[in-house]
């Protein structure tokens, strides 16, 4: 409906107030979907439980069905076998949606620089807020959610135009040591070559 109004009236009407109203509503009624894979999931539970009580910040209605949620909290490392699942669940969520990458493993792979762990989910899907820590304390998660609420209130639009502008996944540049290893292997360096060091 919002797009229809836009079409008819063109540029003659400013929707700032409506945007702000919608963003205010969205920011204060986030429905998180906990995509909890590992340790951070337990801290996510702690955050929702008695002592830290996430419901004070308007986002305690955890829903496990992606169709009912607008905030995905990826808590814990994501590995090769899990990443297609994560992407599929992200695509199932209705717009507008946001993603919090909770913990060092989801942000960058953390201590698990191994063959199986994806080195940061932001390489393969969009992320809005990163929370550092291994695992982050519940206070840090709450801070992350407050930051996301601010982000939504400041930049949110009623028809989610802001997402269309962002076409690339955010995050650090995607060239790293592993890329170098693969280039070396492509150029014919072999493992049994004594000068070849696959780790360094």
């Amino acid at each position: 409906m919002a797009t229809q109004i836009n079409k008819q009236l063109g540029d003659n009407v400013f929707l700032t107030t409506l945007d702000a109203a919608a963003s205010w509503g969205r920011a204060n009624s986030l429905w998180p979907m906990p995509f909890a894979t590992a340790c951070c999931g337990i801290e996510l539970m702690s955050t929702a439980a008695s002592k830290h009580d996430l419901s004070r910040f308007g986002s305690e209605v955890m829903r496990f069905s992606p169709r009912q949620c607008d905030l995905m909290i990826v808590a814990g490392r994501v590995v090769m076998k899990m990443l297609p699942v994560l992407q599929r669940i992200w695509l199932q969520m209705p717009e507008p949606k946001w993603c919090i990458s909770m913990g060092a493993c989801a942000c960058s792979g953390g201590v698990f620089d191994t063959y199986a762990v994806v080195q940061g989910i932001d390489r393969f899907m969009p992320v809005d807020v990163y929370i550092p820590g291994c695992p982050p304390r519940p206070e840090q998660l709450i801070r992350g959610i407050i930051d996301l609420q601010e982000k939504i209130q400041k930049g949110g639009t009623i028809n989610a135009r802001e997402f269309k502008l962002r076409i690339l996944p955010e995050g650090p540049p995607r060239f790293d040591e592993d890329e170098l290893i693969r280039i070396r292997e492509r150029n014919g360096f072999k493992l049994d070559d004594p000068t070849y060091d696959p780790v360094h």
Binding site: T37, A38, G76, R77, V79, M80, K81, M82, V85, V111, F112, T114, Y115, A116, V117, V199
Partner: peptide, 14 residues
Amino acid sequence: IGFLHSGFEKLGEV
């Protein structure tokens, strides 16, 4: 299973 296989034992050798 294996949706959280992260190579712990390989790290143990490093």
